[in-house]
C-alpha cells in the first residue's frame, strides 16, 4: 500500500529533527495567540499532540479516524474545547493545527518520495483542522445553550406575595420551553415556601398558542396534585378567544381579571381576609 509507505516516511521526517520541528511549531502558534495562553501550557499541549501525531502515523497509518489515532483525536478535542471556553476565535484555534503544514516545506531538492509524504501530511492536517473546528463549534453551541437557559431562569422571577401565596408574573411571548421552565420553578417554590396558593399572572402576555395554554393547564393540575391551588389572572380577551377557539378545557380553573383580584381570592382561600392583610401592610409602613 502506497499510503502506508508515505506514513512511514512521514514518521521518519517528523521524528528526525523532532525537537527542532516542535519548537518551531510552538513558536509559530504562540505568535498567533499573542500571549493570551501561557507559554508553558501551550508548550505542554503541543508537545503532547506532536508525539501523539507521530505515534498515530506509526500505529494507525493514514486513517486518522481509526483506532491508532484515538489519542490524537482526544487531545484535539480537549484543545478545541478549551479554546472555545477561553474565548479564542475559530481561526485562532484551527491555525494551531494548520501551522503543522509549515514544518515540512519541499524545495527543488525534495525527492519524489518526500514530496508524496509532504502531500500526505497536508491531507491529514486539513482533516484534523476541520475536526478541530467542528469540535470547537459544538462546544460554542453548548456554551450558548447553557447561557440561554441561565437567562431563562433569571428572567422568570417567582415572588412570594404573602405568607402562603406565591406569584409569577409572565411578560412577553411565551414559548413552550420557557413556559415549562417557569412552571417547574413555580411548583418548586410552592414546596420551598410551603405555599398553598399560586398565582400565574399573564397580563403581560399578548398571545398564547395551544401548547403554551396546555402547559398552563397542566401546571394547575400538577399544583392541585401537590396540594396547592392555582389562579390565573390577567387573561386578555384575545387569549380567552384562543382558549375557546382551540377547544381547550379550562374546566374549573379559577381565573381573575387582575393580579390584585387574584391575590384577594388567594388570601381568602388561606383564611386571611384581604382587609386584614391590607391593615397589616398599612401598619408596617
Amino acid at each position: 500500500m502506497a499510503e502506508r509507505q508515505e506514513s512511514e516516511r512521514l514518521v521518519k521526517l517528523l521524528s528526525q529533527q523532532g525537537d527542532v520541528l516542535v519548537g518551531r511549531w510552538i513558536e509559530g502558534v504562540s505568535h498567533t495567540l499573542r500571549g493570551r495562553l501561557s507559554v508553558l501550557e501551550l508548550d505542554r499541549e503541543l508537545r503532547e499532540l506532536y508525539s501523539a501525531l507521530v505515534e498515530g502515523l506509526r500505529a494507525g497509518g493514514p486513517d486518522w479516524r481509526g483506532e491508532g489515532w484515538s489519542e490524537v483525536r482526544a487531545l484535539l478535542t480537549e484543545l478545541s474545547r478549551n479554546r472555545a471556553r477561553q474565548g479564542f476565535s475559530p481561526t485562532e484555534t484551527a491555525t494551531a493545527v494548520f501551522a503543522l503544514k509549515e514544518l515540512l516545506v519541499p524545495d527543488t531538492d525534495t525527492s519524489q518520495q518526500d514530496f508524496a509524504a509532504y502531500l500526505e501530511l497536508n491531507r491529514l492536517v486539513d482533516a484534523l483542522g476541520l475536526f478541530t473546528v467542528e469540535t470547537y463549534s459544538k462546544t460554542r453551541e453548548e456554551i450558548i445553550g447553557a447561557q440561554a437557559e441561565q437567562l431563562l431562569e433569571l428572567s422568570t422571577p417567582v415572588v412570594k406575595l404573602w405568607d402562603g401565596v406565591v406569584a409569577v408574573p409572565l411578560v412577553g411571548t411565551l414559548d413552550s420551553a420557557r413556559t415549562q421552565v417557569v412552571m417547574e420553578k413555580l411548583l418548586q417554590t410552592l414546596v420551598d415556601t410551603g405555599s398553598e396558593q399560586a398565582i400565574i399572572d399573564i397580563t403581560g402576555v399578548p398571545a398564547v398558542d395551544t401548547e403554551v395554554a396546555q402547559h398552563l393547564l397542566k401546571t394547575v393540575v400538577a399544583a392541585r396534585l401537590m396540594g396547592a391551588e392555582c389562579t390565573i389572572s390577567g387573561i386578555r380577551p384575545q387569549i380567552a378567544q384562543t382558549i375557546v377557539a382551540l377547544g381547550i378545557q379550562f374546566g374549573d380553573i379559577v381565573t381573575k381579571a387582575t393580579l390584585a383580584d387574584a391575590l384577594k381570592h388567594a388570601l381568602r382561600r388561606i383564611g386571611t381576609s384581604p382587609e386584614a392583610a391590607a391593615a397589616t401592610v398599612r401598619g408596617a409602613r
Partner: peptide, 27 residues
C-alpha cells in the same frame, strides 16, 4: 395524599392521571 414532589406531579399529569377524587395537601 400528601407530599407529592413537583417532578412527580408534572409527570403524572403528562401520563394522563389527575387523581380527580383524591384530596391532597402540601405536607
Amino acid at each position: 395524599l400528601v407530599g407529592m414532589r413537583p417532578a412527580v406531579a408534572i409527570t403524572l399529569v403528562e401520563l394522563g392521571l389527575s387523581l380527580g377524587g383524591v384530596r391532597t395537601a402540601l405536607s
